[in-house]
Design a protein around this nucleic acid. Structure first.
Lengths: 197, 197, 197, 197
DNA sequence: TATGAATGAGCGTTCATTCAT
DNA sequence: AATGAATGAACGCTCATTCAT
């Protein structure tokens, strides 16, 4: 279980007048997503509150730490990414091809979120929850893909899922017209490939 | 002893009482290097001044912008790295091997400097000078290595030196016992390799 | 009690917990007025915050720029001065007498505010709003008085309201027991007088 | 005697190797005058030192306070202005006309010196010497002119030379295309005029 | 005597975070 | 539960001034 910090919320609307709160959460998340795109995940809390039309206190109530907010904002995409792993694996004969497609999804996700990749590497306190959630959720998926590819001799064994994910994440840091993360990730994956025919 | 690395400081020592200032520059650079390791290259100027036992004004006198300071701190290593390129190329039959060794030097450099790799990707203003210096100095070297390797068919053409350097730099972001940048860079370079035997 | 002069503060008191903030605004304005007397309108923001017993952030929240604060502190007096123009004009047969009385009010206002007259001449950025407010509000009033006096041949035409106001303002700069701005303004106005018998 | 603070220097080149120092003073004064025009009399000391091509210490050695420097820079003009008083008085039948001409000289002087008029009113510590010098030197001259005009019934008695000078000085504060100090000073002097023919 | 390196107080400004309403 | 006012630490930066060389 992720050490996110939000105990309930999300997913199940629960019942009763909670509907109010749930609606509010949605507004908050939408606003945060908006601001994250514009100003990065380090944007001032007040900017997000303003965009959502609420007070800063409301943000803090729902998301005690910045990481909680980031996690909540991207939870759906992370879930989607996690679920895509097994699906891709099931839909092809080549686990390596599945890995490549999965990496592509992951990259898609990261590059469209301004600064998210950077935040994932940040060792500044307050992002542990973010790290924890991403890793808890995605490392097992990546492991499954790697293992499968190793099992059919498509790639050389010895690469850990965690380091591969970090590598991919790192490669997605920064926006630059002269730098295409996807190509570099492709290179990285090619490096995994078993040289044997 | 601080890990500054630059033993002789700058240019001609000039003459006269400048000896005082020159000595101070050393102290400043040592302190900055120290603090950069501890708190990253974004560390408050005050912290550096404090570590050096000087006033903030002294820092500003010697290094008007933060980038000036960072460049000064790492100039020697960058120069060494730049000069190593041609040397390595001359010392081997395989340009790809030379590239690998060069990348290793570059990685050595980056991973020992906490936060430097991150700063290199930072798009925050005030780091342009830093970017400029690194790129001006190292991209040509990297280009030479890549071209040579392409020329002897060791690697697939089409990868730009700039993107390769950024990729390597990115891979070096973050300190983590479970993540070894060197291995990931190795993977990346293997991905460049021409599949033909 | 501070010599702020504004007793009712701002516009509609609005409702709800804003009462708190409104009260605070009063404290802020009183403190600022106090400090302006002591240290001039260039006084450090911190000093004002300290005098008010609040954090600097509170000042910035209410008055984003220094000019905003100055304008707020003196708004009531400026308004009173602006409204006095037509009133005085209506209450006398001699527009020149009205002008003299009006000038007296203006001087009263300026000499009791240490440094305000100076700030009005300051060309330092950040005071544009202050200039704008004073001029927008008072120049038309002064113009009306001048025009009326010219119309009845009490004064020589050709003097612009703006330059007259600046002159009066300038004459009020500085505190000095041996210098009475009022007398000098009186001289200036006498200089406007039509030499006709 | 002015309480300027510089005991020797200036005027008499003195003798011996002092020639060196005298030459240096000239350079300093020229530089200061230059900078005062550009950046006002509040310009950073370092800017003046830089313009003069000397160290800041040298400035401080010669002119311990900023006022000392300002006084020295403008001493010649002040002297000229002081000496013009009696001369003008001697050259005309109308002391009032002389006063007007003298005021014109004074205004000429002040308006060509960016910020000098302002500095003259500044009550910030460190400008006492400046005040003292200007007043010591010019008030008697102004008094002579006023007395003479009163004596021949050209102007109303009762105006003190000090307040008149301050008034004129004040009217010269600020640079503004829509404000002509000379015209306002003319108005002020007209106000002194005895209404009877 | 001249230099200019060094100092550090001080200023404007931002923002995460708390808490009374 | 929501608000947003208040707080104050922290940072970048500028200069007046001192003093070792």
């Amino acid at each position: 279980m992720p050490t996110t910090g939000q105990s309930e919320s999300e997913e199940k609307p629960t019942r009763g007048k909670r509907a109010d709160a749930v609606r509010n959460q949605r507004v908050l998340l939408a606003a945060a997503a908006e601001v994250f795109v514009t100003s990065g995940v380090d944007a001032p809390i007040r900017e997000i509150a303003c965009q959502a039309g609420v007070g800063v206190g409301t943000i803090y109530r729902h998301f005690p730490t910045r990481a909680d907010l980031v996690v909540a904002v991207y939870r759906h995409q992370v879930e989607a990414c996690a679920e895509a792993g097994p699906t891709l694996l099931a839909g092809t004969d080549s686990p390596f091809a599945a890995l490549r497609q999965w990496a592509d999804l992951f990259v898609d996700f990261l590059v469209t979120k301004h600064g998210l990749a950077g935040a994932l590497q940040s060792d500044s306190s307050g992002f542990e929850a973010l790290h924890a959630y991403f890793l808890d959720r995605l490392v097992p998926v990546c492991a499954q893909l790697l293992d499968a590819a190793v099992a059919v001799d498509e790639i050389t064994p010895g690469t850990q899922p965690y380091e591969l994910m970090r590598a991919i994440g790192n490669l997605c840091i920064g926006h630059d017209p002269h730098y295409d993360p996807r190509r570099m990730v492709e290179l990285l994956l090619r490096g995994l490939r078993n040289p044997r025919p």
